[in-house]
């Protein structure tokens, strides 16, 4: 495998949904012998996907189609139920609000913590600290605990860290939509710069126009299945045609 590639082979993901799942030992004991209410819910089914080094890959699909789950599997947060998922290279991910931030720590401490999670030394992070503070634009709030940050500040710092750690792979869920116009533009610019530097990027967004502009290739997820992968224009066309037909319903658990 070459650095910057992601290989997804026959991946399915099942979550266990337990209706009225016991939350204490007492409840669990009271329930012994009764029929369990466990439901299996397949969020992703038989996904095969190759993301080439240096490419800009986009994922689209309805709410609950499994986009975020697929990113989490790529980031190693969840383990696939079946199949394998492999990535090569330093992976940085910005998956949701407050991605990887500990609320009680200050912004600065969180930057070091994130660095440690990516295997970067304190020295390395100290060297990029000014750049991160500058990019995020949060100023002296860097020394305040992140729990007092606004949503936009969370995302700003999160993005600043994610892109300033020399990622070879960058996964971005739609979070940047929380930032203001100016910040969103800066993010786009920076992602383009990273791509030019050879970073592989996977982006999730509902903004089809944006996706058409940015991505080399798109994948369309529908109820956990990968319907189409290919040229952005073609995939968006197929997706929108499906939406027009009214096929774009929220995933139901049946």
């Amino acid at each position: 495998m070459s650095v910057g590639s992601i290989t997804v082979r026959g991946v399915s993901k099942k979550f266990r949904l337990e209706r009225n799942r016991p939350s204490s030992i007492k409840e669990a004991v009271l329930r012994i012998g009764r029929k369990s209410d466990v439901d299996d819910f397949w969020v992703l089914r038989d996904i095969d996907l190759d993301i080439a080094p240096g490419s800009f890959f986009g994922l689209i699909g309805h709410n609950g189609s499994g986009k975020s789950t697929l990113l989490r599997l790529m980031a190693g947060i969840h383990r696939p139920t079946t199949g394998t998922i492999e990535s090569e290279g330093r992976l940085s991910a910005l998956l949701e609000l407050g991605s990887g931030f500990h609320p009680d720590l200050t912004g600065r401490e969180n930057v070091y913590l994130n660095g440690a999670m990516l295997g970067l030394s304190r020295k390395h992070m100290a060297a990029s600290m000014d750049q991160i503070i500058e990019f995020s634009g949060i100023g002296e709030f860097i020394d305040e605990p992140v729990k007092i940050y606004s949503s936009g500040m969370y995302v700003r710092l999160g993005f600043a860290v994610a892109v300033n750690v020399d990622p070879e792979l960058l996964l971005v869920d739609e979070v940047i939509a929380v930032g203001d116009e100016e910040f969103q533009r800066r993010c786009m610019e920076h992602m383009n710069k990273l791509r030019a530097g050879g970073t592989t990027i996977v982006l999730v967004s509902h903004n089809t126009q944006l996706m058409a502009d940015l991505c080399d290739r798109l994948g369309w997820l529908d109820h956990g299945r990968l319907m189409k992968v290919g040229e952005p224009a073609e995939v968006i066309e197929a997706y929108l045609a499906h939406v027009d037909k009214g096929g774009n319903t929220l995933t139901t658990r049946d």
């Binding site: 980031a75 190693g76 947060i77 991910a93 998956l95 949701e96 407050g98 991605s99 990887g100 931030f101 500990h102 609320p103 994130n114 999670m117």
Partner: peptide, 11 residues
Amino acid sequence: GVSDLRKKIYF
């Protein structure tokens, strides 16, 4: 103490 963190990032 780290379970919330672990839901958002792998370590």
